[in-house]
Design a protein around this nucleic acid. Structure first.
Lengths: 140, 140
DNA sequence: GCTATTGTACTAATTAACTAGTACGCTAGC
DNA sequence: GCTAGCGTACTAGTTAATTAGTACAATAGC
């Protein structure tokens, strides 16, 4: 059994998002390399004891972001053309949209650059726990 | 009646959030000044043709954020203790929503803290021209 | 062509968020 | 005290998101 992901249905985070996150992170870190095959939809669903459609949704999102390439009858594979840098860039692009929206909002309300930066740092600390505290806390 | 807010139930944005945002923005800009009374829950509900509880929820959030002070039997008033600092904090709160959304997106996609910080800096530079921005190009 | 394996499409059940309806507690003025 | 005005608590209806169940389409190997 190759690499197996883990999900927690009670974490509040949608299962399909937990899967996409782990795949993307694995690609970015290099654990999953271009061309490598992912577990099949039904195999992963069986391993995680969830529905196949949930895995399929995760894979669909990953394909939309050009992280994987999937073909009915063959399976799903880490995108070969984009490589790791491509995956990272695809991710960055989506995130950039959200960031720009936030910055525009701040500026339209007259918030200073320093203040905005300060706010950002706090958001960062809130969602990227320092060190390797893997424990999750349900925010307020 | 004095200042009336507007809401769009079909915008997809929860009504109570539309209200809190408008109040916070008004406070930040100075349209609403400390000590000033807000429309009563039922009055505003009648004006906007929505339920009083929806307005009440908005006011509750605003009080939680120390933007207004409300007492049963008296009404709701713009917080007087905070003044300018309060306004700034009110603005920060609105912006914070957008930032948190961006950070969450980044994290859900497996983007590292460093990469996200990098993206943010670039968005910042794009919208806040380098007037007296301190030099922070090299290693962070 | 036939069969096994893979992803997909369609539909339903569950859950959470949001809003509304109604009745109640608190404050002010008489 | 009593009344009027204001916010609150509790409950129910609506909607959207998430997940699961079942049946279908595409690819590979025989």
């Amino acid at each position: 059994m190759p690499p197996i992901f883990t999900v927690d249905p009670r974490s509040g985070v949608p299962i399909y998002l937990q899967i996409t996150e782990q795949v993307k992170r694995s690609v970015a870190v290099g654990v999953l390399t271009p061309g490598e095959q992912l577990p099949t939809v039904k195999q992963l669903a069986a391993d995680l004891v969830i529905n196949a459609n949930t895995v399929a949704r995760a894979y669909r999102e990953l394909e939309r972001d050009r992280v994987i390439e999937t073909t009915p009858g063959r399976g799903s594979f880490i995108a070969s053309n984009g490589s790791v840098a491509g995956a990272k860039r695809a991710v960055a692009d989506v995130v950039d949209q959200a960031l720009v929206a936030a910055v525009r909002e701040a500026r339209s309300m007259g918030l200073g650059r320093g203040d905005l930066k300060d706010l950002f740092e706090r958001s960062l600390d809130r969602w990227y726990p320092h060190d390797n505290a893997s424990e999750e806390n349900a925010a307020s």
